[in-house]
Design a protein around this nucleic acid. Sequence first.
DNA 1: AACAGGGAAACATCCGAGGTCTGTTGCAGG
DNA 2: CCTGCAACAGACCTCGGATGTTTCCCTGTT
Lengths: 240, 240
Amino acid sequence: MPVTDVAIDKIKDMIISGELAPGDRLPKEAELAQRLGLSRSSLREAVKALCLIRVLDVRQGDGTYVTSLEPNLLLDAMTFVVDFHRDDTVLDFLAVRRILEPAATALAALHMSDADIAELGTLLSELEDSPTVEALVANDLQFHRKIADGSGNPVLCSLLDSLSGPTARARIWRGLTQEGAVAKTREQHTAIYEAIAAREPELARSWATVHVAGVEQWLRNALGTADDPTAPDEPAAEAS
Amino acid sequence: MPVTDVAIDKIKDMIISGELAPGDRLPKEAELAQRLGLSRSSLREAVKALCLIRVLDVRQGDGTYVTSLEPNLLLDAMTFVVDFHRDDTVLDFLAVRRILEPAATALAALHMSDADIAELGTLLSELEDSPTVEALVANDLQFHRKIADGSGNPVLCSLLDSLSGPTARARIWRGLTQEGAVAKTREQHTAIYEAIAAREPELARSWATVHVAGVEQWLRNALGTADDPTAPDEPAAEAS
DNA sequence: AACAGGGAAACATCCGAGGTCTGTTGCAGG
DNA sequence: CCTGCAACAGACCTCGGATGTTTCCCTGTT
């Protein structure tokens, strides 16, 4: 195993063992390199890799620090990974989102604060009557992010955030090619908001399912894979 | 922005744009470095980072290649990230797993091949009467992995696989401290298997919910956070 | 045709020398 | 005493080259 990979594991272990706590500063490059028994070049490769996944944070002129290691930060790195997937796997991501989003929406109906719900309503009313597709998608992302955040589970929130990337692309495509998509999206968002405001988790869950499934169904038809037997094609009664 | 980060983006773009397809070989270090306008040292840092998240695969003496970029490979890198989370966030991961696992189990009941179901049964019967905790957990991981794979959604499968890491640790802890956990786990596994074999998605979903919720409930009590208002503490009726 | 040897190619690792940015310290002025 | 600016030191950034290791592949032999 290359020394760089060893160094990555060593640093990882130092963090997991508690020797390095979140926010701590690492020894300077030269010092740490000597301690781990490798050159500065190789160490820098290890640090850069851990930096990409948000475990370390290097600040030029200052030092290298362990990040907060909070779920939202670490899962955020998954967005980078998701970006690599082409359209042929976007359906699989969307299928996962269709599982998580309704659950998150139901949780939001239970746990969201009144103030946050009010902000959610503001978000909806901020949208112009005839928004551009870009504005609609941006508003959509904020809307769903706020709901995911309202679920009270940071892991769930971050995961949904990451999965929304490909969905957003698909949604733009949809908005550009399908008439009525804008109006339909707004109607469904309003319905979800009202269900949450009414503290009706099951109703919120159902609307969320309908909302995501709509995009999924359209995308499946657009890709011509509606007859793919390996794809999950049963509603599975999340909203029963 | 450091030149290394620029290089990471450049390489990423080369892949996303299709200039570099999965399995393709990158130009040699010196050549690519010159083309991207930086030194080999800096380029190597970029390559190493992309290597950690399984986007690139370097083979000494041969060259650097783009991986298959399949979801299972890329999501697999998330396991590395999940390892960094301490016990105080494991409940959040478990809560997400409790959302995904029942859904995956229901899908497996619909899509799993008869041959795979038979293997699932074999897995159960392979376990000794009084297994060690380690053997039980290993068997448990295989069992759930096979079900996740049977859902037919590679993204869902990989995601569950990553989330099972922390769960496994908790399960070991549970097995070591709670009497009857071994027997209960086996009973529930058998019930899940039989529901899948009977092609009963809703029954399979319910058993999976019970199974994961059991660990979750135990862990919450063990951590003394049962009264945490921010944690999702409602069954949310997945199995209604 | 099969096998062993050798050479070329490519990555792995290291070293050392500037460059750039940041945080701090100390001095001068209000 | 407080404020602001300037110089300094510390730490990371980037580079280029030299040497070691591994793999692939061509070649020659059996």
